[in-house]
Design a protein around this nucleic acid. Structure first.
Length: 729
DNA sequence: GCCGCTACTTAGGAAACCCTCA
DNA sequence: TGAGGGTTTCCTAAGTAGCGGC
């Protein structure tokens, strides 16, 4: 089958952001740990078989039964009975919603009156008591078993009180027809603190002479000074854009004097900010606590909203402060001034019957809107690209969780028809129509290489990056034969965030011939797929499966790869650290597939060295312990008394313990080395159906805390609750 | 079918936090 | 107890994709 993924390590080898000198460009080293090679080979061969397993096993998930409401997009087309049922439910919900509104108001009043920090959302619908009790018992078991043991036992860490009963929104019905909420109340955004002028001792020099800047010009100058050590300030575009925008903030006199950025001396300012940051670090415990408490107060006041009777966490309640725009890669607008957002720039969204957020004294909102077909609470338009920014809810909220769940359900639906779709695009490679051939080849790449769709971008407005549909002739090279393989395509382009995608892929002959055809008589900067764009592609995909878009392939292929890799790599006899290494390797396979890269941590080499020192010390310790054991054994052979026998046992245990510790350290080293340039978080958070991980944990008795941290557990609460050990993606 | 606009997800880096170990 | 370093959280840029109007 053609559908194997090309998980090419070259992707990681060469994948650095353009112009990012801090990123290592060295080859992804073949590392020393003996089993790794084997695993990699296994990984590769696995990927070649990826698609063989994709036929639906018709596994009936228990979790499915729990789901009363599947993917909303399919529901739309279900029969009339369901429609009338829906209507009834809708009526019911309207009644409920009135009640909710009352309760929500009451909840909010209560909060204001009593400043109730430990707010407990009212449970609307609960599972039956037996089940709940069982779950609670299990939860508490895992908690004491896992790393929380320490937190509970020694009381070092504050046992943060979590509400006893978490709202299980996934057991409730969803809204239909685009309604996102019925009641929404919040306190609006937190604005950036006003500019504090520099103390007079901190001076700015132009051409070697001290110059007192107007507050407006000074503020913008501090933005530059704060970035003085950053590579950005060495880039021409950044400097040019900054200087142009800075001059706009200067008064006439300043404008006439300051004409050359090279003559500006920001060093005193930079030193001042550095000293401030040092001072912050050196603050006393009490001072730090005070700040922490103030932050907590702000969070409690502005960090939550009431949505349909539930208190939900807001993701970003602070307005972005002014500063210099940090575009990624070769962004033509980097360095431009991101202006301060004021209340009159803000559109507030809340329900009519809620207590509307109050703008700061003497100001007004741009608009107060009551649009319950959207999920945002606050929006404003930023001045760099003219795009809209939003304040939205936290990933743990119902509104985000539902959407996330739905995303994975769509990907699971793709699993059921992916063979048909693959057969179709293979047929389409032979089409008489160029546009169909192009569409089919592009889809093949999206499916096989997990490329992004590649929307068109406005030239000169952003960095020059591409996705599949926007690939240009210059981004691929064709080799009829390379390194012993036939029909090799070499991809080399900058993708999202200007991260380089480099891969050498053997493709089927027909794909290769098609690519030759698409490239005929074209210049290097011409579009490879000139008869295709994302909207055409997605329209076609929509016809193949309801809700199918290019993006779904990435989710599907990421999740199916994780599931298959976990099956492949997990060994029943392994201990927990070894199993976790397997999990991370499975996760890593996905990250490589999706080209999720990171800059190697600045301290990488050093931390590896430290770890190696620890390993060496442990090895010495082990040989000492073994020697002691040997002599104890010899002693016991001669004396044959209880005391020496006991000594042998003790020594044996010591050897075992040290061996285990050594193994742990070695596993840690392997994991870290393999992870040098790969970011696991993005795929874990956005592409991997969390139920696969939850099921894996349950199957192998791995505490979920080993896989997901607190925030991740909150985001995936729905999956943790609903997936059993036999869940199949 | 193209364009502009809007809403939302995905993304890597920086900053803050916190644990470990000397 | 404080430095060092790993982990988590925050920040916001940069994508995808749908919709309505022409």
């Amino acid at each position: 089958m053609s559908g194997d993924h090309f998980l090419n390590e070259n992707q990681i080898d060469c994948g650095s952001r353009v112009n990012d000198s801090h990123k290592h460009k060295e080859k992804y080293k073949e590392h020393k740990h003996k089993d790794h090679k084997k695993d990699k080979e296994r990984e590769k061969s696995k990927h070649n078989n990826d698609y063989k397993d994709s036929s639906d096993k018709k596994h009936r998930d228990k979790e499915k039964e729990k789901m009363r409401h599947k993917d909303g997009s399919t529901d739309k087309h279900k029969d009339k009975h369901k429609e009338s049922g829906k209507r009834k439910r809708l009526n019911l919900r309207m009644v409920k919603s009135k009640r909710r509104r009352k309760m929500a108001l009451a909840a909010l009043c209560m909060e204001r009156d009593e400043d109730d920090v430990d707010f407990k959302p009212k449970k609307i619908k609960t599972e039956d008591d037996k089940k709940a009790k069982k779950r609670k018992l299990e939860d508490s078991k895992t908690k004491t078993k896992g790393k929380n043991k320490k937190e509970v036992a020694d009381g070092k860490k504050k046992p943060k009180k979590e509400p006893e009963e978490k709202w299980k929104w996934w057991e409730e019905e969803r809204y239909t027809d685009g309604v996102k909420w019925k009641f929404l109340e919040h306190k609006g955004p937190v604005f950036a603190p006003p500019y504090e002028p520099l103390p007079s001792r901190v001076k700015f020099y132009y051409d070697g002479k001290h110059m007192k800047l107007s507050p407006e010009a000074e503020e913008v100058a501090t933005f530059f000074a704060k970035m003085l050590e950053h590579e950005y300030t060495t880039k021409d575009i950044f400097r040019k854009n900054f200087f142009k925008d800075w001059r706009k903030e200067m008064n006439a006199e300043e404008k006439s004097i300051i004409t050359d950025l090279k003559k500006c001396d920001f060093t005193e300012m930079a030193e001042y900010f550095k000293a401030q940051s040092e001072a912050r670090k050196a603050m006393s415990k009490e001072e730090k606590l005070k700040i922490k408490e103030e932050n907590e107060r702000l969070l409690q006041e502005y960090g939550f909203c009431i949505m349909d009777n539930h208190k939900e966490r807001i993701a970003n309640f602070r307005i972005e402060p002014p500063g210099l725009f940090r575009g990624r890669g070769d962004h033509p607008k980097m360095g431009m001034l991101k202006r301060r957002i004021r209340p009159q720039d803000i559109i507030v969204n809340c329900s009519k019957d809620s207590k509307h957020p109050v703008p700061p004294p003497g100001t007004k909102w741009k608009e107060v809107r009551h649009d319950n077909k959207v999920t945002w609470l606050v929006s404003w338009t930023e001045n760099i690209q003219g795009s809209i920014k939003y304040i939205m809810l936290n990933p743990s909220s119902r509104i985000k969780g539902e959407k996330d769940w739905q995303k994975y359900e769509t990907a699971r639906r793709l699993k059921k028809c992916v063979d048909r779709i693959r057969n179709q695009y293979r047929e389409d490679w032979k089409s008489k129509e160029m546009r169909i051939r192009q569409r089919a080849v592009a889809l093949y790449f999206i499916d096989k290489l997990a490329l992004r769709a590649g929307n068109e971008k406005e030239e000169g407005e952003t960095a020059d990056t591409v996705g599949c549909c926007s690939l240009r002739v210059e981004h691929i090279k064709l080799y009829p034969e390379k390194d012993g393989q036939e029909y090799v395509v070499e991809f080399d382009f900058l993708g999202k965030d200007s991260i380089r995608y480099y891969n050498q892929v053997p493709v089927e002959k027909r794909v290769f011939k098609n690519l030759q055809l698409f490239m005929e008589n074209k210049e290097s900067d011409d579009d490879l797929f000139d008869r295709l764009n994302t909207s055409v592609l997605n329209k076609h995909l929509q016809e193949l499966m309801d809700g199918l878009t290019a993006k779904v392939f990435r989710t599907y292929n990421a999740s199916i790869t994780l599931q298959q890799q976990l099956k492949e790599l997990t060994t029943a006899d392994d201990n927990i650290p070894a199993k976790i290494l397997s999990y991370n390797r499975a996760n890593r396979a996905v990250a490589i597939l999706c080209n999720h890269q990171r800059a190697p941590p600045k301290t990488f080499e050093k931390s590896m060295q430290n770890l190696q020192t620890k390993i060496d010390a442990k090895k010495d310790q082990l040989s000492d312990a073994k020697r002691e054991l040997k002599s104890a054994k010899a002693d016991a052979k001669v004396r044959k008394d209880e005391k020496t026998k006991k000594a042998v046992e003790t020594k044996k245990k010591a050897v075992q313990r040290i061996e285990e510790q050594l193994m742990k350290l070695e596993v840690q080293a392997t994991d870290r080395e393999e992870n040098k340039q790969i970011a696991l978080g993005t795929s874990k958070l956005n592409y991997l159906d969390p139920r696969i991980s939850v099921a894996w944990c349950k199957k192998w008795g791995i505490p979920i805390e080993k896989i997901y941290n607190k925030t991740q557990r909150e985001k995936f609460a729905w999956a943790i609750d609903m997936a059993d050990d036999d869940y199949e993606f």
